[in-house]
Design a protein around this nucleic acid. Sequence first.
RNA 1: GUGAAUGUAGCUCAGUUGGCAGAGCACCAGGUUGUGGCCCUGGGGGCCGAGGGUUCAAGCCCCUUCAUUCACCCCA
Length: 413
Amino acid sequence: MSAIQKIKGFADLFPEDARSFTHMEAQAREVFGRFGFGELRTPVLERTELFAKGIGEDTDVVGKEMYTFTDRGDRSLTLRPEATAGVLRAAIEAGSIEPGRATRLYTFGPMFRYERPQKGRMRQFHQINAELLGSPEPQADVEVILMLEDFLKSLGIAELSFELNSLGCRECRPDYRAALTKYFEALDHEKLCEDCRRRMHTNPLRVLDCKVPACKALVADAPEIGQHTCAGCRDHFAAVLALVDKAGLKYTLNPRLVRGLDYYQRTTFEVTSGAIGSQTAVAGGGRYDGLVKLLGGPDAPGVGFACGMERLAMLMEKPEAPRPDFFLAVTDTREGTDAVNTAILLAHKLRQRGMTGECDYAPGSMKSRLRHAGRIKAKKCYIIGADELDSGQVTVKDMEDGEQLKLDIAAFD
RNA sequence: GUGAAUGUAGCUCAGUUGGCAGAGCACCAGGUUGUGGCCCUGGGGGCCGAGGGUUCAAGCCCCUUCAUUCACCCCA
């Protein structure tokens, strides 16, 4: 009862689990590197206004899920709930965004949202994030989507589905919003859930995304964005789909796909899995033209995505623990000998030769030491017992075929 | 923020109507006086989440509290 426990929604990752994360990071570096993306690391703490402006005041993330506090200098700070705003802030601050020229960045690390934890949802969770800034072309959208697909493939995850949609732009989305609100007002909106009755005015796009069955039913005949988008958005999305088709990516069009962050424009996409509890999204992203400017940068467009690492970890096969090259067993149980010292120094020599392995700090029986070597799957067991110590030798037993030989310890110097 | 379930050994979990605290795995030792994996035997380990109540007697019943998990919601 006295021991301090970790706080709710935060997790400790011991090697067995941490290996999955390390592997994902390595694959991300590999795959994203092939696409010319460079790694960016930004702080976990930012000024609150960055997220309020960037993500949108009306979103759930900003409205009720942020870890916000006032620091000793009376500044309002927030633990980042997502990565894009911070990446853009950094890129703008460094002056590295030029409209018309692609800037390719990826980042990964912990994000924080104050929600009730459940399967696939932690208060501290980790995302892998990629942003392509400066390019308005539909090819940029496609490259980002293909890069995401390649990355997920590299993790060996099957049974994922890609969903695509276009949300329109600043020009045409207001038309669609108006049409939606009109549609909801015209029908019996008493049947909508409480949230949706509010949302139909404040943010009618979100009603499309509601999971309440009654709402789903009412939404079924709602006007679709495709009928209201401007020519520019239509052409853009058509070009995206055509190229994605040519690339051979399998996807479904989901006209109801609405993302929870306000900054998305035009192309949006989500990758989902049915195998991670009631959460389904393992990755999501889209185009966010206008966001860079909104955050005080040049008028440059952007596309990007985020993957939830905990969710990917649930779908991935766990990487095996690496097998040690050796276990160095001390079986000389006589009092006052130099066996352990000799063993530690020998182990050190082996490691300097590039081998991995552990060494006993206390002598034990041959049986228990060998059993331990077997348990940790050491390739070889080096044994220093009374005989070896007296003759200046070490016994090396191959744990695979059981063969063993004696070597002079001095030969390792 | 709302709802439900669960807290017993390091881990996964049994525990009957209230009647001596259990198993498997892991760890240690022995069976084999210096040789692992399989098998057998033994051993160490527990404030039964915490606090209060009922009772001759509580892991079990009642109340409170804390924690965890799942779901709603939201999203990666």
